[in-house]
Design a binder for these strands. Structure first.
Length: 563
RNA sequence: GCGCCUUUAGCUCAGCAGGAUAGAGCAGCAGCCUCCUAAGCUGCAGGUCAGAGGUUCAAAUCCUCUAAGGCGCGCCA
């Protein structure tokens, strides 16, 4: 759909095949300013081989080009600028989108190969905080993008349902817990206990040891510990499922850390048999000196397992179960060392597929410039933010469109869309300082802005009773539509790049640009005006709705037809 | 101390497999609803691209160093 290949071919001929395609196509670029044309080729690189000034080359080549696809070729400075035939290209682009509909931009380059995605992974007995939102929405969008490229994503919610923290929690419950209170308000009460534990632990050092002891008992199958753990876990999952429902996200697997309990001996044995395990300060470690990394802790001095042990077991299990081509870990950047170690240990075990593990790292969500800490009770609850956003969306609806039929559902779509979009619109590596004000903004570069643009476009189609099924030739000069057309045709390429770079923000930026361009058009052109081009304009509007909806859906955001 | 990440307009960020006058949004100011949803559109104002060297015909973009901030560096995950 991009025309750079055609341009390169034409250049190739104009240069009488003295320069290979490989030296032409990659250099073709899109001028920053529309007045400079649609595609440009800088001739500087040819100056040496052609032994002419770039200006002269551009001049000469421009005169040799004669293609029906280009309506104008211009030499400007050392650049060769071409202007596409707007009418022709507009018709081609629109016809393709209307024919492919929601499959526009899809490819099968993934050949149905599996990509495991470790994502979301909230901690049991802790509230689902804003911090966990990032992994959840980035993972979800990557799954959608990869599916779009023909891969088979497997979304794994690697629940944080095991570890010393449960020893601490059990300790806290034993000391200060109250069954009735926890039953009445599970997560809130468990969080309070967890916070209290850390407060008390500062005064009483013995608590930490007690926490470790309880965890050890849990690992050894102590009945009381297990019972409490099961209870905490069940309550937490109930809480999480409410949030996943709001976000409209589901998982292929909820195999969390505890799932690997019976699979860790195997890992330890394996390490042992290869002679990789050494004792250090009473703990079992794998030395990674050759790799220039700190040693990887496998077993604590009391014999209990660690995060790394579980992740090793998980990697082996996933490879065996899913035979993935790639395994993504959508986990915060602060764990990058852990993943380096994980891969290094797998490599030492002789598993070459360790190279297929990818840490899809992202920046930290901070509050007032500081890391959010569950231990200190400084968390912003995702559910509260979601509900607030939904309520605000509802207010807007009452104000702007009080007769809207399904207000509640639309308010949910818009409110949630605002939050998800806000998280995905920036490059994932950036740290984000939590700002309720920014998140609850529905104007400018936001999810609701894109949704609104889509809804307005839908509204036009509704008024015209447009049915996309009938075939008809597109008759548009393309002059006013041109900026939008450019963005429509570049969309498939954006999907590919976003998937390849594991970067949903590219899609978000693309649909913002598209929405902006279309809103400009909307302000200038009366689509429903009765003339010969009306049907073609409707086709154009329909294509825009298709791509906007597709773009939003790839971010995991819904697109109401009316709002 | 070592490693990774970040630094572009008052604020939040695009742009970075080098290319033509550095772009949005928010905030500010000035306009636009007898007309397809004003969650919109138009205009104005706002920048030594952290700093210094280097590579190149060409550097916000690549390399080196410096500075500032963040994160990590053995029994947390």
């Amino acid at each position: 759909m991009m025309y750079s290949k055609e341009f390169a071919k034409v250049l190739y001929e104009a240069l009488e095949e003295r320069v290979t395609m490989d030296h032409l196509e990659p250099f073709i670029e899109k001028p920053k300013h529309l007045e400079r044309g649609d595609l440009a080729f800088p001739c500087f690189s040819l100056a040496k081989t052609e032994r002419k000034s770039p200006q002269l080359i551009a001049q000469e080549v421009s005169q040799k080009i004669n293609s029906p696809l280009f309506e104008k070729v211009e030499a400007a400075g050392g650049y060769l600028n071409v202007f596409l035939n707007k009418q022709e290209v507009t018709a081609q682009v629109l016809e393709e989108i209307l024919q492919k509909k929601q499959n526009f931009g899809a490819s099968n380059s993934g050949k149905r190969r599996t990509v495991a995605i470790d994502m979301s992974s909230p901690n049991i007995a802790k509230p689902f905080s804003m911090g966990h939102l990032r992994s959840t929405v980035i993972g979800q969008s990557l799954a959608l993008l990869l599916a779009q490229c023909g891969y088979k994503p497997v979304k794994i919610n690697h629940l944080g349902d095991w570890g010393t923290q449960f020893g601490k929690l059990i300790t806290a419950y034993k000391h200060w817990g109250n069954e009735e209170k926890v039953k009445a308000n599970p997560i809130k009460e468990l969080l309070a206990l967890y916070v209290k534990f850390h407060e008390e632990a500062e005064k009483n050092v013995r608590l930490e040891a007690e926490g470790r002891e309880w965890f050890k008992r849990l690992e050894d199958g102590d009945e009381e510990a297990a019972k409490l753990w099961k209870w905490f876990r069940a309550e937490s999952l109930k809480d999480f499922s409410r949030i996943y429902k709001l976000l409209n996200i589901d998982f292929d697997s909820y195999a969390g850390e505890a799932f690997y309990n019976d699979k860790m001996d195997h890992v330890v044995d394996l390490l042992e048999s290869r002679g990789l395990l050494t004792e250090s300060e009473q703990a079992q470690v794998v030395s990674l000196e050759e790799e220039d990394l700190p040693p990887c802790l496998i077993k604590k001095s009391d014999g209990a397992t660690l995060y790394a042990t579980r992740d090793l077991a998980a990697a082996l299990y996933r490879k065996e179960t899913y035979n993935f081509e790639k395994a993504l870990y959508v986990v915060g950047g602060e764990q990058s060392l852990h993943f380096k170690q994980l891969k290094a240990v797998l490599k030492k075990l002789g598993f070459d597929w360790a190279d297929d593990l990818v840490h899809v790292s992202f920046g930290m969500m901070r509050k007032d410039g500081k890391k959010m800490s569950t231990r200190k009770g400084q968390v912003v609850l995702l559910e509260e933010v979601l509900q607030e956003s939904i309520a605000l969306a509802k207010e807007n609806i009452e104000l702007k469109n009080p007769n809207l039929p399904n207000k509640e559902e639309v308010a949910r779509q818009v409110g949630v869309g605002a939050i998800v979009f806000n998280d995905l619109k920036n490059y994932r590596m950036n740290d984000i300082d939590f700002s309720l004000e920014d998140i609850l903004r529905f104007e400018g570069e936001t999810g609701p802005y894109v949704q609104y643009t889509h809804a307005r476009a839908c509204s036009i189609l509704r008024k015209a009773a447009w049915d996309g099924e009938k075939e008809m030739p597109i008759q548009l000069s393309g002059e006013q539509e041109w900026e939008v057309i450019g963005l429509l045709m570049a969309f498939p390429e954006t999907i590919k790049k976003a998937a390849a770079a594991f970067d949903p923000s590219r899609v978000a930026k693309h649909i913002i640009d598209l929405a902006q361009a279309f809103n400009k058009y909307y302000a200038e052109v009366k689509v429903l005006q009765e003339d010969e081009q009306k049907e073609s304009r409707l086709a154009f509007v329909s294509a825009v709705t298709q791509v906007l909806r597709k773009g939003l859906s790839l971010l995991g955001i819904e697109a109401p037809d009316e709002m």
